[in-house]
């Protein structure tokens, strides 16, 4: 059983080293792949110095979707069985990954999502972002008839089937809510598990307040378009 931990990273020189150490400690026997999304800081040099960590360097900043897709492709090419995705900023503690890995390895789930809201709502996020998340959550509940409390979480695990299906046509940016949507509609078993997350340690979130409106409109539009296409099948 081969597990690959994929970490999309953009300017995470301050956190990536420690994160990698923690992953080796908590996710035993896994390989780590960092996808350096054309960072402008010293992320590339940090990765070079880490030795055993595999990394891809994207030639230009492709955004989170491109970085994750690169990880998916690496996963498929190198015959891994399960994939864990986590952010490079230290928000997702590796000691929490066990729940997600267990869900796809032993629990029969196709994909598992770490939710920071399941169980303990109203924590961690700014007001604006929470509003957006709530809207997305209601939308997914209506369309998918399945409740997801943390659509934007990037702390996830997948089995090979789910990765192969997603890699065939992966969204460029803001892939998280759409991913749940695509998989669930296709009949894949996507489950949510409560995980503890930390506030960011370094760097800035790719989704800031100003961005949130744009993010929301984009995601809603994409899902709407996909919904119309999906409805014709």
């Amino acid at each position: 059983m081969k597990i690959l931990v994929v970490i999309p990273a953009f300017n995470e020189e301050g956190s990536i080293g420690r994160l990698v150490g923690e992953i080796y400690e908590h996710i035993k026997g896994s390989d780590i792949l960092v996808v350096n999304d054309c960072s402008t800081d010293g992320t590339g040099n940090v990765l070079k110095s880490l030795g055993s960590v595999k990394y891809l360097t994207l030639p230009f900043n492709m955004g989170i979707g491109g970085a994750v897709l690169a990880g998916f492709n690496y996963f498929l090419e190198n015959d891994y069985d399960f994939l864990v995705r986590m952010d490079g900023d230290g928000q997702h503690p590796p000691d929490q990954a066990g729940i997600l890995i267990d869900a796809v390895v032993n629990g029969g789930a196709d994909a598992a999502i770490g939710s920071r809201y399941l169980g303990h709502e109203k924590e961690y996020s700014s007001h604006m972002r929470r509003m957006g998340i709530n809207l997305l959550n209601s939308l997914s509940s209506i369309i998918l008839r399945k409740k997801f409390t943390d659509n934007t979480s990037g702390f996830r695990s997948y089995n090979r089937n789910a990765v192969r299906y997603l890699a065939a046509d992966y969204p460029f940016d803001y892939p998280e809510p759409e991913e749940i949507y695509i998989l669930t509609r296709k009949g894949y078993d996507v489950r949510e598990y409560p995980v503890r997350m930390k506030a960011r340690e370094t760097g800035t979130s790719s989704i800031n307040t100003l961005h949130t409106y744009y993010f929301l409109v984009r995601v809603l539009l994409t899902i709407f378009v996909k919904y119309m296409i999906g409805g014709k099948k």
Binding site: Y55, L56, T57, L58, P59, M62, G66, A70, N73, Y74
Partner: peptide
């Protein structure tokens, strides 16, 4: 074009690795 460029870039990054 954007889709093709992205695919090409990913392939390139994989080859580099």
């Amino acid at each position: 074009l954007k889709r093709k460029i992205n695919r090409l870039s990913i392939t390139n990054a994989l080859l580099e690795e």
